[in-house]
């Protein structure tokens, strides 16, 4: 079980959190083409290595934040607030 460092509450067990999938997926406006909308709805990164993802401290402060997790080692490399640019500008 992961130990996640909530930016508001400190390190807590994974069981208190819920993962919201890939971070920095931009929700396009209504005008976009079908292909772009499809990409927004369904297409997600599946990297071997650093993965930027959204987590919410559901059974704690209730706040959403971003996490960089290594998908092989499960090591959490960084935690940063919603709205902050992805580290190294590596948004998918």
């Amino acid at each position: 079980m992961l130990l996640i460092d909530c930016p508001h509450c400190g390190p807590r067990a994974e069981i208190e959190f819920h993962c919201g999938g890939q971070a920095h997926v931009v929700r396009p406006g209504v005008e976009v083409e079908d292909a772009d909308w499809e990409r927004y709805l369904f297409v997600r990164a599946n990297p071997k290595g650093a993965h930027l993802e959204r987590w919410v401290h559901l059974h704690g402060c209730g706040r959403w934040f971003n996490v960089v997790r290594h998908t092989v080692s499960d090591e959490i490399e960084r935690v940063y607030p919603m709205g902050e640019a992805p580290p190294g500008g590596t948004a998918a």
Binding site: G20, R27, R54, L58, G62, R63, W64, M82
Partner: peptide, 13 residues
């Protein structure tokens, strides 16, 4: 409730 919070915090802050 979770969906509203998600939208409010992350999509339309």
């Amino acid at each position: 409730l979770a969906w509203l919070e998600d939208l409010s915090q992350t999509e339309w802050p």
